[in-house]
Design a protein around this nucleic acid. Structure first.
Length: 314
DNA sequence: CGAAGCCCCTGTTCGC
DNA sequence: TGCGAACAGGGGCTTC
């Protein structure tokens, strides 16, 4: 399950290889993988084909390639969301098709802004692979950001455009974004009248946190998932953000170490999950901090894991 | 506007 | 053995 750190690993991998590359051709093998692109495959192909990739940007779990098209003055965006099972692969076109290959793009001029390719193998194809089709691609013109800052984390922050794809405009900045506003978040979350975990899963309030990292961050912060948001203190919110950042940077460090420069890949098995999960999926196990027994409760059609001893409701 | 619930998807696992 | 149900879950959408 790709969450923010996994998507960031993909963003960095792409930024290393495809800046300056041109998308020469596109083969949409599965139209449902353009679920975010309402005008259909032909429109997608016509808009993207022959564009040059000038930036790779991420906000929360959304990732987009900024495209310059020879016939269009304004830059556009190819937006990607990996959903549950999406992968973006960058490889040699001779590589065999993946079982769930949905969209294939052939690239020219790959690696012109990159360090020398270590393996010597050509990288000339970008593939979108997605078993469950919860993710998808879309192509769209961009709009100005509300705050006038860059749309997200960019490959070249000093010259990043204050533009964002409309499909991402309602998504709030994530905690790793240099323009994330912690004070505004603190005010906004206490205005909500709901439970803490519901709030932090709302990508319009803070983005990049999924079910797994929500549980992990709440455990680190010693906060119960159902704590009412309106009663949170400044200190609670500070611990919460600290927990969120800790979980994300730890996962990012691990994803970064397992990342092969020649093969951009997200498969939900970053290694982080096996060894580092303190509560998620640990029902019946002893809490590593206090020895309490981790509980699982059904919540929002999924599961919440927490320690009933060191994560009290109030 | 905010809160909450439904639904989209497929592969794996589990119970009868 | 075979089959259906449950589960995984981000986010768009609808309803109140």
């Amino acid at each position: 399950m790709p969450e923010l750190p996994e998507v960031e690993v993909v963003r960095r991998g792409l930024a290393n290889w495809v800046l300056g590359a041109r998308i020469a051709d596109i083969d949409v093998l599965e139209a449902r993988s353009l679920r975010r692109h309402l005008d259909g495959p032909d429109d997608f192909v016509a808009g993207v084909r022959m564009s040059t990739i000038t930036d790779v940007v991420r906000r929360g779990k959304f990732l987009w390639l900024v495209l310059d098209h020879p016939d269009t003055a304004e830059p556009t965006a190819m937006v990607a969301h990996l959903g549950m099972s999406g992968q973006i692969l960058l490889l040699d076109s001779a590589a065999p098709d993946e079982r769930h290959l949905r969209i294939r793009m052939s690239l020219d001029n790959v690696g012109s802004n990159s360090p020398a390719q270590p393996g010597g193998s050509p990288v000339d194809e970008l593939r979108f692979v997605d078993q469950r089709i919860f993710g998808g691609l879309q192509h769209a013109p961009m709009v100005p950001t509300r705050d006038g800052f860059p749309g997200g984390l960019s490959a070249h922050p000093e010259m990043a455009l204050p533009l964002i794809p409309p499909a991402v405009a309602h998504i709030e900045r994530d905690p790793l974004d240099p323009f994330f506003d912690a004070e505004a978040f603190s005010i906004a979350i206490r205005r909500r009248k709901t439970g803490l975990k519901r709030a932090i899963l709302d990508q319009g309030l803070i983005s990049g946190i999924g079910n797994i990292y929500a549980d992990e961050a709440l455990w680190l912060a010693r906060l119960h998932y159902a704590r009412p948001t309106e009663a949170l203190t400044e200190a609670d919110i500070e611990s919460l953000l600290e927990g969120v950042r800790e979980v994300m940077t730890a996962a990012l460090d691990q994803g970064g170490t397992s990342f092969d420069a020649l093969y951009v890949n997200v498969n939900g098995e970053s290694g982080y999950f096996d060894r580092s999960l303190n509560v998620y999926g640990q029902a019946g196990e002893e809490c590593r901090r206090c020895g309490g027994i981790i509980e699982r409760e059904k919540f929002m059609n999924r599961s919440s894991y927490f320690c009933p001893v060191c994560q009290r409701p109030r």
